[in-house]
Design a protein around this nucleic acid. Structure first.
Length: 400
DNA sequence: TCTCCACAGGAAATTGGGGGTT
DNA sequence: AACCCCCAATTTCCTGTGGAGA
């Protein structure tokens, strides 16, 4: 083997198991939710009746999608053993979609092969219903990350009511919505809530003990025997529990820790590796969320970063704005109004990259916001300067 | 105490672009 | 080519807030 590659088999038995795409086939920590989903929602199918509509919610990495996938597969197997029931399940992630229109287009594409984007809304839905009619029987549509499409949206009550509104005949459509966002449910249109949320199942964050047993189960398959210390697993579980209580996060820590151990040619993953992994993963998360920002968001962040390097934060909005206009005059972009920059700053606050504090009473009274970076300055600078045209802006302005 | 000013932020209108049809 | 639909970002317009200074 050349020096370019490394044999990681000392540490990893099967890395695949640690990847995001891996769906576990048992979820003992979600026994309660699985039971409810099975008994209260899906059971009618075995009697050739449509399942109830359901809404699964909880923070990311709580096994919502895994639970839905797992149980629908089980259900399909059950159904296959009996004759006379025609069940189809459709998984559709709403990630990156901001409206039911796009989701409907994607569904049509998934079912028929071509995307009706551009056609009037009514036509798109008509084609969706046609496609569903074509399938017939019982169709379960799982809309993952529905919170993406906004809560005033019609698809959420259109689909569950398709039959009532005579869009389809002699068949049934049920919808299982999955949401990461707790507030989404509360703000949902009452009509949508009514039809979609016949059964609501909450997925509370895992605690450290649960995360530890999840990690144990995963690492038994993924790592070579005794390549991971119990202390390392306990630490990864504890760190993730403190933060988001997300299994995805905990697994990411452990995977990265394993990679660090492998890189250093160490035979065992220990606490030290987990700590390094946590730090690394967090930096990567921040970096990625900055990369995903729009140009104007990045420019607003750049303005604040520039103020931060000169120790001028927290800074009130007008100061950030004036730094912003300084920057845009050096960079090949158009500058936008303060009103807009203000809302960009709020957006950045929502993501957690900056934080704004409202204080009343500046020199002139009235409410006033003071902004500061909420992330590591070096990481922020590094990521922002990845963008070529931002490259020397910071030094041009006031880099010490 | 009253008025004014600088900022906050909601709402509506505008812009521009990507997809399409006829 | 002229036109339609949908969407996101932005601008424009406007009202609300509350201490400073008259």
């Amino acid at each position: 083997m050349t020096e370019y590659f490394q044999d990681r088999s000392e540490i990893f038995e099967s890395e695949r198991i640690l990847k995001e795409s891996y769906t576990p086939n048992d979820l003992p920590e979600r026994e309660e939710q699985l039971k409810r989903l099975g008994l209260e929602v899906l059971s009618p199918v075995l009697n050739d009746a449509p399942p109830h509509n359901a809404f699964l919610y909880g923070k990311p990495g709580q096994g919502k999608t895994a639970a839905a996938r797992f149980l629908l597969e089980e259900l399909q197997e059950e159904v296959d053993e009996r004759s006379g029931i025609n069940l189809t399940t459709i998984f559709q992630t709403c990630k990156g979609h901001h409206s039911s229109y796009q989701v409907a287009c994607d569904l049509v594409e998934q079912l028929t092969g071509d995307n009706p984007n551009g056609h009037p809304k009514r036509k798109v839905f008509a084609r969706l219903y046609d496609a569903l009619q074509e399938i017939g029987g019982i169709v379960v549509i799982v809309l993952d990350e529905v919170d993406n499409i906004g809560n005033k949206d019609m698809i959420l009550y259109e689909l569950p009511r398709a039959r009532d509104n005579s869009h389809i005949e002699d068949m049934d459509v049920s919808v299982i919505g999955i949401s990461n966002d707790m507030t989404f449910y509360e703000e949902l249109d009452p009509r949508a809530k009514d039809s979609l949320c016949e059964v609501e199942i909450h997925f509370p964050p895992y605690d450290a003990d649960q995360l530890r047993s999840i990690l144990n189960r995963r690492s038994e398959k993924a790592f070579v025997d005794s390549a991971v210390t119990q202390e390392a697993i306990a630490l990864a579980a504890a760190l993730a529990a403190q933060d988001l209580g997300s299994a995805r996060q905990a697994i990411r820590y452990l995977y990265k820790a394993g990679e660090f151990a492998a890189l250093n040619d160490e035979p065992q993953v220990c606490e030290e590796h987990v700590r390094k992994a946590e730090d690394h993963v967090e930096q990567m998360n921040i970096a990625q969320s900055i990369r995903d920002l729009t140009i104007q968001d990045q420019l607003a962040l750049l303005a604040l970063t520039s103020l931060a390097t000169g120790n001028e934060t927290p800074a009130p909005t007008p100061e950030v704005y004036s730094r912003y206009t300084d920057i845009t005059s050096h960079v090949d972009t158009n500058s936008i109004a303060m009103r807009r920059v203000r809302s960009h700053l709020h957006d950045l606050d929502m993501i957690g990259v900056v934080s704004g504090a409202k204080r009343s009473g500046g020199s002139r009274g009235g409410p006033k916001y003071y902004w500061e970076l909420n992330t590591d300055l070096d990481t922020t600078v590094n990521v922002l300067t990845e963008e070529n045209r931002f490259n020397d802006v910071l030094s041009l302005i006031d880099r010490p």
